[in-house]
Simulated assay, not measured.
Amino acid sequence: MHHLKDRKAVISGGGAGIGQAVASSLAAQGVRTAVADVQLPEIMQENIHAFKCDVSSGPSIDSLFANVQESIGSPDMLICCAGRGIHEKLTEGDPEKWRQIIDVNLMGALRMVRAFVPGMLEAGFGDVVFISSVSAGQAYPYGGIYAATKSALEIVAETLRQEVLPTVRVSVVAPGVTNTAFFENTVSGSQSVESIGYGFISPEEVAEAVLYALARPKGVSVNYMTVRPTGQPF
Score class of each variant (00 low, 15 high):
residue 161 R to H: 02
residue 148 A to D: 11
residue 66 A to M: 10
residue 134 V to N: 03
residue 114 R to D: 14
residue 131 I to F: 07
residue 151 S to M: 07
residue 80 C to H: 06
residue 136 A to K: 07
residue 88 E to C: 07
residue 128 V to F: 00
residue 136 A to Y: 04
residue 114 R to M: 08
residue 155 I to C: 10
residue 133 S to Q: 08
residue 172 V to T: 15
residue 100 Q to P: 08
residue 147 A to M: 03
residue 100 Q to E: 15
residue 139 A to K: 05
residue 131 I to T: 03
residue 132 S to Y: 06
residue 111 R to W: 09
residue 82 A to P: 06
residue 141 P to I: 13
residue 155 I to W: 05
residue 141 P to E: 14
residue 103 D to P: 07
residue 107 M to L: 15
residue 85 G to F: 05
residue 109 A to Q: 13
residue 70 E to N: 14
residue 159 T to Y: 09
residue 131 I to N: 01
residue 173 V to Y: 09
residue 140 Y to V: 00
residue 72 I to Q: 03
residue 136 A to T: 07
residue 105 N to V: 06
residue 75 P to L: 07
residue 104 V to W: 06
residue 83 G to C: 07
residue 173 V to C: 11
residue 131 I to E: 01
residue 160 L to E: 01
residue 109 A to N: 12
residue 115 A to C: 10
residue 169 R to D: 03
residue 106 L to Q: 14
residue 109 A to W: 04
residue 75 P to T: 03
residue 119 G to E: 08
residue 143 G to N: 06
residue 77 M to G: 02
residue 130 F to A: 03
residue 79 I to L: 13
residue 140 Y to W: 13
residue 147 A to W: 11
residue 177 V to D: 06
residue 151 S to F: 03
residue 102 I to P: 06
residue 71 S to M: 00
residue 90 L to V: 15
residue 166 P to I: 04
residue 169 R to H: 05
residue 77 M to L: 14
residue 138 Q to W: 13
residue 125 F to P: 00
residue 149 T to N: 12
residue 84 R to N: 12
residue 95 P to E: 12
residue 75 P to G: 09
residue 105 N to H: 13
residue 133 S to E: 08
residue 142 Y to F: 13
residue 160 L to C: 02
residue 144 G to F: 09
residue 126 G to R: 00
residue 150 K to F: 05
residue 165 L to C: 15
residue 165 L to W: 12
residue 139 A to Q: 06
residue 77 M to C: 07
residue 73 G to L: 08
residue 82 A to C: 06
residue 158 E to M: 04
residue 89 K to I: 03
residue 71 S to R: 00
residue 128 V to E: 02
residue 132 S to P: 05
residue 76 D to T: 01
residue 169 R to E: 05
residue 88 E to F: 04
residue 161 R to S: 08
residue 171 S to P: 12
residue 109 A to P: 12
residue 95 P to M: 13
residue 149 T to G: 10
residue 77 M to R: 00
residue 162 Q to M: 15
residue 168 V to N: 01
residue 64 L to E: 12
residue 169 R to I: 05
residue 161 R to Q: 09
residue 65 F to S: 14
residue 88 E to M: 11
residue 167 T to F: 09
residue 173 V to I: 15
residue 72 I to M: 00
residue 66 A to F: 04
residue 130 F to N: 04
residue 165 L to K: 15
residue 177 V to K: 02
residue 124 G to C: 02
residue 162 Q to Y: 03
residue 158 E to T: 01
residue 125 F to W: 11
residue 128 V to Y: 00
residue 175 P to Y: 09
